[in-house]
Nucleic acid binder design. Structure first.
Length: 425
RNA sequence: GUGCCUGUAGCUCAAUGGUUAGAGCGCCUCACUGUGGAUGAGGAGGUUGAGGGUUCGACCCCCUUCAGGCACCCCA
């Protein structure tokens, strides 16, 4: 055992049970994305480091990306996020792609961080973007997609909420309490920290970046004003539209949501598990310059990203992951002895043609062992074909759940299996 | 990058510094050569993460190192 080469730190093995959960989540993501008219796309997992130098947060590339030189001495990186790739792909065909474009993607990403609960070094991320429009309806649609996903997984609006704010509104509001423009970037960071620090620590942090006591008080009033959104025509319209999308239960205004990243310009939002850990399930917002950094013309858009690790924890905690996932065989065809193997194979093929998942025990062995095997795989039906049955053109079918066994004519086989398999999972 | 905690059988864990490191579960065999979950009997499986030190004696104490977990940082 000690000789088995271990897996790379921060990566995960997906055994069939875990893979089934991942498949289930990804299927919901695909269903929701495509239902809203989004097209799937993907880029390479390897990119030149230059792609990220311009745009992403400094720390993301310098300290959190897997960077290495290729045998040809190119500086490459395993993609830590999708947006720069999306920006490049859009810029390359900026005047060919019909705008606005609706694209979505799910794939692996890598960040060199210390793994802990809810965070790995290799993870999957769902990205979805609506690019080429500044319409508020686009913002509402993207949030509606996020809400629809959460709803579809079985999470209730008591368990999860999407909090929405607007950077422009916050900018105006900060002006009313006389916070200088140069401080905005830092102030956004301060607001972002609000729920992560104690009030005392938070106040100290706010003062440290250069705010006065009066400004800190003003800021506190601001971020506790649940009606602040009424001062923003954009947000008023946004929430009207959210009602029409039918997801208003899942969406709330919050002046505390601001997002750390610099490139957001308008609507910003984050989904949180309520009551549980306060880590964001997904986050996104409106940006004005998707492609200008990679050499395109100004192109506004709105989108969000969701990692698979946190959402899976939330889904697990909420107990909404279905019990029986995956595609184990439904029927095991036993092999009585070596001479019977061809007949068993024939029967299995017959069952498959009828649309059931059937596996043949691959060799002749004690029936008890074969049953035990079926048991461990949670297979519900076994087919037994011995010399007695073969001589009279019969076959025995056993319901492993109820222990009922019947011997019937070969032509009745499928009908009997149907009786024993109540519903297709 | 920083801090804290933990490494003993496949898994979950025991074992005052003192014989040959144990248990439950799991695994294999048999009771049961045409029938599984139960029961009983037997069996396999360990360089106690690795290296060094202290000691008459180390799973236990000390140092180093590796790995894992958690938290900070940052973010999905």
């Amino acid at each position: 055992m000690a000789d088995i080469v271990r897996s790379v730190k921060g990566t995960r093995d997906f055994y069939p049970d875990e893979m089934a959960v991942r498949r289930w989540m990804f299927d919901i993501i695909r269903d929701v994305s495509t239902r809203f008219g989004y097209q799937e796309f993907d880029g390479p997992c390897l990119e030149f480091i230059d792609l990220y130098a311009a745009k992403s947060g400094e720390e993301l590339v310098k300290e959190q990306a897997f960077v290495f030189s290729s045998p040809g001495d190119d500086m490459l990186t395993l993609r830590p996020e999708l947006t720069p790739t999306l920006a490049r792909m859009v810029a390359q065909r900026q005047y060919e792609i019909p705008m606005p474009l609706r694209w979505w993607s799910i794939g692996p990403f890598w960040r060199y961080e210390n793994p802990q609960r809810g965070r790995t070094r290799e993870f999957f991320q769902w990205n979805i973007d609506l690019v080429g429009t500044e319409a508020v309806a686009a913002d509402a649609e993207i949030v509606a997609v996020a809400a629809s996903f959460l709803k579809e997984t079985g999470l209730s609006s008591d368990q999860v909420q999407i909090f929405v704010n607007n950077r422009r509104l916050m900018d105006d509001a900060l002006s009313t309490i006389n916070i200088a423009k140069e401080l905005r970037h830092d102030v956004f960071k301060v607001v972002d920290k609000l729920d992560k620090l104690s009030e005392k620590e938070w106040r100290a942090y706010a003062l440290e970046i250069g705010l006065t006591e009066g400004q800190v008080d003003g800021l506190l009033n601001l971020v506790n004003d649940q009606d602040l959104f009424m001062k923003s025509d954009e947000l008023v319209e946004f929430f009207e539209l959210i009602k029409i999308f039918g997801v208003e239960d899942y969406v709330t205004y919050s002046p505390k949501v601001i997002r750390g990243l610099d490139y957001y310009t308008g609507t910003v939002f984050e989904a949180f598990e309520l009551g549980g850990a306060s880590r964001a399930i997904l986050g996104g917002g409106r940006y004005d310059n998707l492609v200008s950094d990679v050499g395109g013309n100004r192109l506004p858009g709105v989108g969000f990203a969701m990692g698979d690790v946190v959402i899976e924890l939330v889904l697990r905690d909420a107990g909404v992951i279905p019990e029986k996932l995956g595609h184990k065989p439904q029927v095991l065809v036993t092999v009585f002895d070596e001479t019977m193997l061809p007949e068993s194979l024939k029967i299995a093929e017959e069952i498959r043609m009828a649309g059931y998942r059937a596996a043949v025990y691959p060799e002749a062995d004690k029936l008890g062992k074969q049953f035990k095997y079926a048991d461990k795989l949670d297979i519900s039906v076994a087919v037994i074909l011995g010399p007695d049955e073969l001589n009279e053109n019969l076959v025995a079918v056993k319901n492993l759940k109820t222990r009922d066994q019947v011997t019937i004519g070969r032509s009745e086989l499928i009908k009997q299996i149907e009786k024993f398999l109540p519903s297709l999972p």
